[in-house]
């Protein structure tokens, strides 16, 4: 089950308004390679996992991604909460604003709402881990593209943290993959129930 701790994993304290940047960063909230997709992917894959270590890794990384979701939501909120209405159109923020105001809504930078189609839970322990390795790389690339879009250190610091977390997660999924391979290749005993004769 989940419990909420009233603090951030990494602090988000932004001084300068920048709705144009918020429009881009929202993609890590509800976009194809964002934190919501990541957490639902791993938390959904847990059930089909076969080794205790891979269950733990899926559970714990899935949980950490929720903390990252909160960070991204905080960044977007703080970047847009006090914007001057006269600047909305110039910032390219108008199409988001008319549907969501300065609220936070899970969608991509292009405005596509979040969908479960952004992730897979295949029920095959090897397939799921390969999916996760790819997912962490996609997230890392996205953070790199986002980091190129700003010089604001208040924004860059949390983005840099989040990017490095993707690299660490990739490593852990890689280790889980080895554990699952060993398990699947090992000698295991199955008991098959014989059907009764009619």
């Amino acid at each position: 089950m989940w419990i909420y701790e009233k603090k951030q994993e990494f602090p988000v304290k932004i001084k300068q308004q920048n709705p144009a940047l918020a429009k881009l960063i929202i993609t890590q909230y509800g976009g194809p390679d964002g934190e919501l997709g990541a957490s639902l992917r791993y938390l959904s894959q847990r059930y089909a996992a076969v080794t205790p270590q891979s269950k733990a890794i899926l559970n714990d990384i899935g949980t950490e991604e929720l903390a990252h979701l909160e960070m991204i939501g905080s960044i977007c909120h703080q970047l847009s909460k006090d914007i001057d209405p006269a600047e909305i159109k110039a910032a390219g923020f108008d199409s988001y604003y008319v549907d969501h105001g300065t609220g936070v809504y899970p969608a991509s930078a292009a405005g596509v709402p979040f969908t479960a189609a952004y992730f897979q839970s295949k029920g095959d322990p090897l397939t799921d881990l390969y999916e996760n390795l790819a997912a962490e790389q996609k997230a890392r690339s996205t953070y790199e593209y986002l980091m190129r879009m700003t010089d604001d250190p208040d924004v860059l610091e949390p983005l840099r943290f989040l990017r490095e977390r993707e690299i660490v997660h990739f490593q852990r999924f890689g280790e889980a993959l080895e554990g699952v391979r060993e398990y699947l290749d090992s000698k295991r005993q199955f008991t098959v129930k014989m059907p009764k004769n009619e």
Binding site: F10, P11, K13, K15, S74, H77, Q78
Partner: peptide
């Protein structure tokens, strides 16, 4: 303040 608000946080 709540954690998503500027005032809650500190600079590292």
């Amino acid at each position: 303040p709540w954690p998503w608000e500027n005032d809650f946080n500190f600079v590292v």
